[in-house]
Amino acid sequence: MKKTTLIIMAGVTVLFLLSWIIKALALEGMQEDYIKKAFLVTFSAFLTLSILSFLYRDNPFYKFAEHLFVGVSAAFWMSMGFWSTIVGNLIPRLSQNLSVFFKVHYIPGDFNFRFYIPVILGLLLLMRLSRNYGWISRWSLAFIVGTTAGLNFIRYLRSDFIKQISATFVPLLVDWQGTGHFFSNLDLSASGQLVMMLANWTIFLGVMSGIIYFFFSKEHTGMFGRASRFGIWVLMITFGASFGYTVMGRISLLVGRITFLFRDWLGFNI
């Protein structure tokens, strides 16, 4: 490690230690466990800045924050899995003594041999750790894949296929009472006749041409080709909108972090 790197690291550490002390002094009298609270805020600020420092270039602070995040989240999910799945869902149905031990609400009378099936399948899944008997875990995997596929197949078919088809059955002439009525009621409000009509036409043409674009059994030439071309435009507009929304989302997250830094850490009144 270079000497300058060490100096910078030491400097930053001192800076944040100072920040902790100042924060603790500021919080004293306002909160009970002010030293702990000040540490948490300062440490969060340090981690936020460490991650943001990647925008300048890769550095040890970023690496530290990233590794800490990876490690903590792995441990968090593991303990969460144990406490919410095994202790939360299984033990209350399995044994009263264990429920008392783990301090969870026992579900009396619900005991049934079928709750041992997931226990066995779960144990089989752990066989993945064995080099020679790893193949046994495929039974559990097959069960997971099979049930999920079955469950999702029906739900998706209903919600994403049948219901979505019927959602495209829209009146192309909304509230049509002749041209006289149409022209006398022209307004540009979102619930106005003209806008509704345009929206419905867009849905109809967009869905139709989008499907045509993803039709692989026919060469895209002539009329079909033109429809597919329109389809790709519709797709591109959708992606554009999606991109715009993503930018909005990312900026929101940045605003969230910056607000944290200025308000919670530096104590600005915003």
Binding site: N152, R155, R158, K163, Q164, S242, Y245, G249, S252
Partner: peptide
């Protein structure tokens, strides 16, 4: 998929911007 459609339960949502465009097809039906 698992509550609104099968149970005919009125569903509304608040979503992160990244997901919003993908959810528009479900509105309003």
């Amino acid at each position: 998929l698992f509550v609104g459609d099968p149970g005919n339960v009125p569903i509304a949502s608040g979503v992160a911007a990244v997901v919003a465009p993908l959810m528009y097809p479900y509105y309003p039906a």
